[in-house]
């Protein structure tokens, strides 16, 4: 069978939960952008070239204010700094994916990362193409959702309070799934605890960067026990 098609068949089922989440969240984002006075093109363009959900919500808010590209640039780095982690985690996996890697890196959002980082890819499926399809399908869902919302937002007003919880549920389920698979829970606990403490200290607008710093420090300090726990075979 065609290598690309085989990889697509393996990748698609893994992206179905993301499809629902991205179509819902994307539509919510598109409607939000329209009700904020932006043209339909702005949220769709942003979905395609930024492809970082939470930052796009922030960006819509910034586009309602004053023209300040430097501030927008710095904000994007801060909100998306966690992607530095993803890049480091995927150095080896994406590095071996040939020219496709440039697109894989471009599309390294939370959801593509969590699927591609944790997926158990069958031996006979090409890894590079599996990563590619996960990334491309996720982006297709997100841009489609944004387009649906942006166009629908032009003439109808949908009120569905609580729908945005789909993002939270998604992130939670990804975490639980990884928890059930991982050999050592130390790192997961470090991440949860550090972020929770930093959220309480710094507040919801500025806890991400301190959390990352604390996580880096703690993981460095706990290197020996974590390496030992990860190296042991699962009983």
């Amino acid at each position: 069978m065609n290598v690309k098609l085989k990889a697509l068949k393996a990748a698609f089922p893994r992206t179905i939960p993301i499809m629902t989440g991205f179509l819902f969240l994307g539509a919510a984002y598109g409607i939000y952008a329209r009700t904020s006075g932006l043209s339909a093109a702005a949220p769709i363009l942003m979905a395609a070239v930024v492809f970082a959900g939470s930052m796009e919500f922030v960006a819509v808010d910034m586009l309602r204010g004053a023209f300040d590209p430097l501030n927008a640039f710095l904000m994007a780095i801060m909100v998306n700094a966690r992607h530095l982690f993803y890049g480091m985690a995927m150095l080896d996996k994406y590095g071996k994916s040939g020219k496709k890697r440039w697109y894989l890196i471009f599309g390294l959002c939370d959801e593509s990362f969590s699927i591609n980082c944790t997926a158990e890819i069958p031996e006979d499926v090409d890894r590079g193409w599996f990563y590619f399809w996960v990334t491309a399908l996720n982006q297709l869902y997100w841009v489609s959702g944004a387009a649906l919302g942006a166009l629908a937002g032009s003439f109808i007003h949908i009120e569905l309070p609580g729908l945005d919880f789909v993002m939270t549920a998604l992130l939670l389920v990804i975490f639980v799934e990884n928890w059930l698979k991982e050999r050592s829970h130390l790192s997961s606990i470090v991440g949860l605890a550090a972020a929770l403490v930093c959220l309480l200290i710094f507040g919801s607008d500025s806890f991400i960067i301190p959390s990352m710093a604390v996580i880096l420090i703690l993981l460095t300090m706990l290197r020996k026990p974590i390496e030992k726990a990860m190296g042991e075979t699962k009983s």
Binding site: A89, C117, F175, S188, L196, L219
Partner: peptide, 17 residues
């Protein structure tokens, strides 16, 4: 770090949610 950060990053995202 590349290996160990996965769990921590996902934990951070849960709190983010």
């Amino acid at each position: 770090l590349g290996k160990a950060l996965t769990g921590a990053a996902l934990g951070l995202l849960v709190v983010y949610g």
